[in-house]
Design a protein around this nucleic acid. Structure first.
Lengths: 208, 208
DNA sequence: ATTAGTTTGTGAACTAATTCACAAGCGCCA
DNA sequence: TGGCGCTTGTGAATTAGTTCACAAACTAAT
């Protein structure tokens, strides 16, 4: 399969969320044009995105909502349950552990790690915070798919190394650091400061 | 000034965070090559990004760390204090109100709104949750720069309308909905589901 | 002063992503 | 069955973004 751009994957994800809404409204079909309007893009973009994976529509009619949802879920790998561990039991880690949206989409948080003695052993929801030194050993049994990294910037490169050694192939990184990992490990960065600064930039450079 | 791509702004923001780290280490200069390595990009990219705003380096030497930090802060509009309101007093809103990173960068949360009677009047940190119906009136006095929207998807389009009517020109949107706003309003979307699905996609399509 | 060693700034070349534009397919109706 | 209106799927054209590659500028050393 040819390489798929990250922007394409983001849009597919967006289309899926729209389709779920449309489905709840009971509508049976939708055109690329309507999807585009919802997603703030063009109908050609929608069709191009989908055409990378097959042809799911009917000319003159559009796309069947349940069928396309199913295809997108399949493409995005949402059929299965993913095992997620959270690393870093600070503010962000805590918020994420409580976040219901994870489980709803098949992302099950099955462990939390930290290096801080004071936090280790504490109970969080139905999990106990474990020492990060145990990650590699635990991983052989638990077989984590995804590590959510929410550690202080300075510790994060070391944490990333441990995650990689534990054989985890996907990282959602909340630390404001660029992780260097082998090419078979996928990293997504979430960085609030960057988003805010984007807005700040836009506000400052209005109309120039 | 010519249009600056969002990807460029993200990188500038990243460079700034690296420069701050470098500065704490006491280093005085840095080359585009080192900055590139930290940011997982190329030196040509770094230089091109900066060259959009001026020429800040010295050939043969690199960039002065404090000088470049200052320039980037200026470019990103971080010189001033921004007034931020949070709309939606749910889980995400609560986490954001507690988040220290906002104030550290000059983003001051000065009000919280919700439409739910049960939440209105509750105290949050040093703020009281106010009815969203008051947003437009309040805005004339408080002059918000940025609205952080963390409301349920179905209410969000209506909320966005109110934000626009209140004259706010920048929105950080946590709802999984594409906001339609006038072109002078800037929107940034943060969507955890999308990030997770990106990882899920990557894991599912390994080596094809 | 000259040379060697760096590193910037930037056109030009290239690569990637988006949009255009239209033939082909489908449903509906007469 | 044939024609009309609509919508997909996709090459081609366009636009945006990245990388190359090199002259110019600077430091340090001799």
């Amino acid at each position: 399969m040819k390489r798929i751009a990250e922007s394409t994957v983001r849009r597919l994800s967006l289309y899926l969320s729209f389709l779920e809404g449309i489905d709840r409204q009971g509508l049976k079909t939708i055109s690329s044009d309507e999807l585009a309007r919802l997603g703030g893009t063009t109908s050609a973009q929608v069709r191009k995105d989908l055409s990378l994976f097959g042809s799911f529509g009917k000319r003159g009619l559009g796309y069947s909502v349940p069928e396309l949802s199913g295809k997108l879920r399949e493409i995005l790998g949402l059929g299965k349950q993913w095992r997620v561990c959270i690393i870093g039991a600070g503010k962000i880690g805590a918020a994420l552990a409580r976040y219901r949206g994870f489980a709803e989409r098949g992302f099950n948080v099955t462990a939390v790690y930290d290096s801080d003695e004071a936090k280790i052993g504490k109970r969080w929801e139905n999990l106990t915070v474990r020492p990060i030194s145990e990650l590699e050993k635990d991983a052989t049994k638990q077989d984590f798919d995804i590590a959510v990294v929410a550690t202080p910037a300075e510790n994060t490169p070391a944490v990333a190394k441990q995650v990689v050694r534990a054989g985890i192939k996907a990282i959602l990184n909340f630390a404001p650091v660029q992780l260097s990992v082998p090419s078979d490990v996928t990293v997504r960065n979430v960085n609030m400061a960057m988003e805010l600064e984007g807005l700040s930039f836009a506000l400052s450079n209005r109309g120039e």
